[in-house]
Amino acid sequence: MSKLDKYLRLDQFPHFACSGCGHGIALASMVRAIDKLELDQNTTIMVCAIGCAGRLPVYLNFPSIRTAHGRALTIATGIKLANPKLKVIVFMGDGDAAAIGGNHLIHAARRNIDMTAIIAINEIYGMTGGQYAPTTKSGHFASTAPFGMIEPQMDICKLVEAAGATFVARGDIYHVVELEKLMLKAISHKGFSVVEALTNCPTQFGRRNKNSRPSEMIKNIKEMTITKKQAEQLSKEELEHKLLRGILIDKERPEYIEEYDRITNFQEEGSLK
């Protein structure tokens, strides 16, 4: 028995993920970060929605709420408004967070409500059979991009930064120790924090893009990301196909509910009358 077993709903196993799927690595990084932070299992709430990533938190032994596609952040917002003392972690896939839930992502970042959004990026809708996502790179193939993706790839980190997120980080499932540290920092951060975790989908993405060996895919992810330091050594052209890894934004701004309670002179229920 692993010391992390207590965080799992073991009666729900075996899980549904395909062999070679990288989502479990991202999820495990999150669980290890939670363990290091010694968060209370009863007051840490897992919020998720639909898709491969969206189903994963159901395997975790926390209070969990699995919502409709794209709506996880709205439900998380409601949980915080009802009880700001709860720790809220939202685990989403790229389609869930950035396509159908894109508007909610922008406004959650703008409000700076204290919660953590972890977004597993695999460039594809895996559960429904390999359709392209806003994060699919131009030229890649998907079941709905049989001639290649013509839309440009969305940079979720830049989007949430522009919207006002106070902590933004990107990690990947090759640099797994670093990913765990990023998640730990994000979860400890006061305000809206986002961690983009680059993962792989051999079944739906790899198969269509002539690279379905999980180890090869993970190696590609490794080569795709660079640290800020490494980036300084590269030319503009060399940087074009690279993604920055590590903490991209870490700043302070008033947290929404603290600010709300301050300016509205919020009265805790017990203190009334």
């Binding site: 709506r71 952040l73 408004l81 009880n83 709860l86």
Partner: peptide, 21 residues
């Protein structure tokens, strides 16, 4: 607490989350 959300989808999402809590 009151919050004005980005649309009605988000508004009902918030009240479901709040009620679940």
């Amino acid at each position: 607490r009151f919050i004005q959300m980005e649309d009605e989808i988000a508004s009902i999402g918030v009240i479901i989350g709040a009620s679940a809590a």
